[in-house]
Design a protein around this nucleic acid. Sequence first.
RNA 1: GGCUCCGUAGCUCAAUGGAUAGAGCAACUGCCUUCUAAGCAGUAGGUUGAAGGUUCGACCCCUUCCGGAGUCACCA
Length: 595
Amino acid sequence: MDINAQLRSEIQKALQYLFGTSTDDIQLQPTRPEFEGSHTLVCFPLTRISKKSPEQTAQLIGEYLISHTSQVKSYQTIKGFLNLTLSDNFWVGVLNEIHAKPGYGTFPSNGKEIMVEYSSPNTNKPLHLGHLRNNFLGWSVSEILKANGYRVHRVQIINDRGIHICKSMAAWKLYGNGETPESSGMKGDHLVGKYYVEFDRQHKKEIRDLMMQGLSQEEAERQSPIMQLAVDMLRRWEAKDEEILSLWRMMNSWVYEGFNATYRRMGVEFDKLYYESDTYLLGREEVLKGLERGVFFKKEDGSVWVDLTAEGLDQKVLLRSDGTSVYITQDIGTAILRFRDFPNIEGQIYTVGNEQEYHFKVLFLILDKLGYAWARKCYHLSYGMVDLPTGKMKSREGTVVDADDLMEDMVRDAETLTRELGKIEGLSDDEAKELFEMIGLGALKFFLLKVDPKKRMLFDPQESIQLQGFTGPFIQYTHARIRALLRKAKQEGVMSQSASIENPAQLEPAERQVVIVLSRYEEKVREAATVYSPAILANYAFELAREYNQFYQTVPVLTEPDRSRLQFRLALSAATARVIRHAMSLLGIGVPERM
RNA sequence: GGCUCCGUAGCUCAAUGGAUAGAGCAACUGCCUUCUAAGCAGUAGGUUGAAGGUUCGACCCCUUCCGGAGUCACCA
């Protein structure tokens, strides 16, 4: 089945036969579309072995492959490139295998477990566009790893404590008049976010007033009454003051309810949630243990540090002089707790923005220093920020794109266009609604996933609602069209009963191209996992859909009189629909039966 | 300032050190009396930020420079 591996081994045999020695460095690549063939052997590096020119080397190998293998039908050499054309017979066999393999694209269990963290929001405001990229990425990478045979645990760390939530609490206490999600009809996370914004407004106002009275900016920021209230709340929270704790629990519960609704619509789930309030103390203990063992050191003021100068970094504080935790302290605790909870995982993948690259470098080094072997298997899945045409998203400047609003907009646009195109006849209201949701979310997810995660990307709302070209809906549409075709074939009774495909005498170029693209799917699933990039599959799904559309446009299916050709085309269509569905599901995107 | 990442068509993005650097959008031209035109075919668009170097071969590796972003908190 693995065509590359087959060819590689045949080529190695050829080298052995022709030149008396071989190499593992066989450079096989897809043939460029402007040339004949499907696989290209780059022969320049082989001249060391052959002691001949690249052209001659290519020629000799080509001749050998034709006479010694069943699959290579002809070859063409251009400069040092050996382009191999495989027989149509072989390609029919390939399609047969794909067709007969329901799990094409899913690999058997490799016995390994892995943990993927994503989302991990603060609890003081609703999710935004950046969280969407994060969540879609985390979900998709999890699906990709599962398809590659891993058992995956999806988790997040919820940053539920700290000054940020106390700010929302303080503003609510002062100005909320007991407002609740029920009384206001507002989603809980948005309600709490409203008071976070309110805090900032008040804080700024108080700073202005205090500075007018002659205080410095820094003093004013600290002495502002609302800031002092928030800081006091944080102190009382750490002292387990019941009044504060119950306010904190109440407001966080509002947020969780809101988050859950957002996650539901996004289509993401988690196997286990970790809360910072549960792990920061463990982190503190671990740091203290490390201090005893001499892994860390204490400064005169009582603060605890790690020295990473030997690793090319600097010194990092782990506990403040008053003994309290900093950000990284709880991450240490969380990591250790997770490996206790899931002793069989071989590592963790942290889906976190690239602004925290330094942080994770430090974290993994610390865990390593503490003697945890798994630290070396931890990976920061670092992704680039999402920018707007107006520049960077800034919550304080109100330029943040809200996740709920955006999803709503996308679905509404999908609905408008679908109605305009008159594509909802025959659908019930529920079915239509489901379709709009699938298209809107599909467009959004695809837009965010088609770019290499590592790269920062621009989110242009105008472009994201596009449903043509390199988009999710284009691929969904291709799938729907195939399904319609297959329904009709069944209805007309032209669908073959036999499981295997008959061999048409010769393939149309468009048919052959589709099979070639289909045959590359599993290596793409592998590659996506090794580089943690859903973009690989997004690009692949697009390429497949495009290739199929070309076939669909140029080759008739249902009206084809030749029985074996008809069956081949139906099988080709069915396999394409299945691979599209599979690839899209790895992106977290559904595909419709009609649209 | 130190470190890291990024500069590819007007815009958004592709391209394991390999062929004439490819798609989508936008622009322009065609194709619905045949399986869904959210489609297909075509035209135009490039000194891959600049200059050197390594290599049979460089968007990719190395050096310098220019431009942009991130980071270097007893913030998270």
